[in-house]
Design a binder for these strands. Structure first.
Length: 277
DNA sequence: TCAAGATGATCAG
DNA sequence: TGATCCTCTTGAT
């Protein structure tokens, strides 16, 4: 379930388990062998996320850059570590824990300048204290592209994926096909604040809950459902089902190569003033 | 038991 | 735009 909150949560888990310790680094699958050998036995300095990118830092300004893609997983466990099963691309092992990476789109050894090049391409990440939301607004407010495409563009906003896209636009009753440049500044600022809150909740709980009354202590302690995103949502993957607010049917369509979900009644088609007049 | 689809991104054509 | 990477869950058979 790799949206931005997953990576920030993972970075925290890696720091907690390994930061400051010498770790064993290996690549049982064989696709990261040379880099793993270089890092093996080196102190792990820390880990941080930027959008959907994860950087694990080792002494000597070496970074492992990980992007989980659609199906990747990076899990932290307590020792003893069993023999690797299946395609484990990367294993980091310490005294009391180990972490296995599988199925990632990217797992590379980076220098500081390579890390910076990746970060420079990304838009502001709502989960980072150093994010500058104005940068995203400049891009949105100048673009003719649909807002449903812009919020998923990592050069506009880093860390937002398909679930947060659908839910954010629903919560603000915005037509996903509405051109970015027609949004009002106040609308965008409200969306940004909402994203920060929703994603911080995601980091704390590991779930994506966007239905307003889900943000309660009771909801926080309820065990996650088996569904992937783990929480309660308004429209994501609810196509054909009644909208929780108006009862109309939730619809789905492909936008930006991904399945978009929205409620046509709560998010009516946007018409520009010039066209309506 | 098997096939399809999925919260992503890149590359070739 | 489609193929590719690669894993896991779900639903059909």
């Amino acid at each position: 379930m790799p949206e931005g909150h997953t990576l920030h949560r993972l970075a925290g888990a890696l720091r907690e388990q390994f930061a400051g310790a010498r770790v064993a680094v290996s690549s049982p699958q064989g696709r990261f062998v040379e880099s793993a050998a270089l890092l093996d036995g080196t102190p792990l300095v820390g880990a941080e996320a930027w959008g959907k990118h994860l950087f694990v830092e080792f002494e000597g300004e070496h970074f492992i850059h990980v992007h989980l893609g659609l199906i990747g997983k990076f899990d932290v466990f307590q020792t003893p570590a069993p023999a690797p099963v299946g395609q484990v691309r990367l294993r980091i092992a310490g005294e009391s824990g180990y972490a296995d990476l599988r199925g990632a789109t990217a797992c590379d050894l980076f220098t500081e300048s390579q890390r910076q090049m990746v970060v420079d391409r990304l838009g502001p990440d709502p989960l980072r204290a150093d994010a500058v939301p104005e940068t995203a607004w400049r891009r949105v407010s100048r673009s003719h592209r649909p807002i449903g495409e812009l919020v998923m563009d990592q050069e506009v906003l880093a860390g937002v994926g398909n679930v947060y896209r659908a839910e954010l636009l629903f919560r603000h009753r915005i037509d996903p096909l509405r051109p970015g440049r027609t949004l009002r500044r106040g609308q965008w600022e409200a969306m940004w604040r909402d994203l920060v809150e929703l994603m911080e909740y995601g980091v704390r709980t590991g779930r994506i809950d966007t239905v307003r009354d889900e943000h309660t202590p009771e909801a926080m302690h309820r065990p996650p459902r088996k569904d992937d995103h783990g929480g309660e949502v308004y429209v994501y993957r609810r196509h054909g089902q009644p909208c929780l607010v108006c009862g109309g049917k939730v619809r789905t369509e492909v936008l930006a190569a991904r399945n978009l979900f929205w409620c046509p009644r709560c998010q009516p088609r946007f018409r520009s003033r010039s066209r309506a007049a």
